[in-house]
Amino acid sequence: MSKLLSVEHLTMQFGGLKAVNDVSFTASASAITAIIGPNGAGKTTVFNCLTGFYHPTHGRIILQREAGGTVELQHLRKHQVAARAKVARTFQNIRLFAGMTVLENLIVAQHNRLQRASLFSIAGLFGLPAYKNAEKDAVERARFWLDRVGLTASADVPAGSLPYGQQRKLEIVRALCTEPVLLCLDEPAAGLNGSETAELARFLRELRDEHGLAILLIEHDMGMVMGISDHIVVLDYGRKIADAAPAVIKEDPAVIRAYLGEPEAA
């Protein structure tokens, strides 16, 4: 597996607090890399550094480009991470455009491509065919992903009116509509019931295996993490305490002490 993302000596300091302290790890293409650890370990902070919401105090975040070459994420601003580096993310507390319809959410995700096609609105205002075709493509892409997660029937309802589980799904496919090379999911299974979690796990595997997508996953549901991850990074108090395949992590004494806990005596 080729290396897609490498995080080198990442440190994020807030005043006297080092939320992330000298963390290095890599994520491979077409693989699911999980970041786990207790609450407050710095997992979401790592995500925020990756996606331009924070600018790290030290360290580098290097992404391989599809076309060759690399791009360093630590200097990019929020919208540039999605637009230039093709890294998409979801949020721990779902952030949809609640008043807009499901389909509109997915069309907004394709903003930059459509904006170029509409010649920054000028061609769009006059309804030129180039824009119409681009919009048709965008709708098709949206329909493709909606079919995949079974939301096609709800395409024209406001996103905020969907049930919770479907909102989670919508947020993921919205990120996918940006056509990312790396998808960062912040606790996608939070609040889902057992069958929804299983469905999510199946979907993420499909993304990896069929679409060759690299996924970075923060999750507390250990059943799902151990089941689908190719690689796990464990954080505790901002430091990396382990970095290995799931089978190894399960047995790691440091991880058990900090996070997993002793297996209950049967």
Partner: peptide, 14 residues
């Protein structure tokens, strides 16, 4: 409209 609804999410989409 997207920025009105949620500016954080909108920025994360580019």
């Amino acid at each position: 409209e997207a920025l009105r609804e949620d500016e954080i999410a909108a920025q994360s989409l580019g």
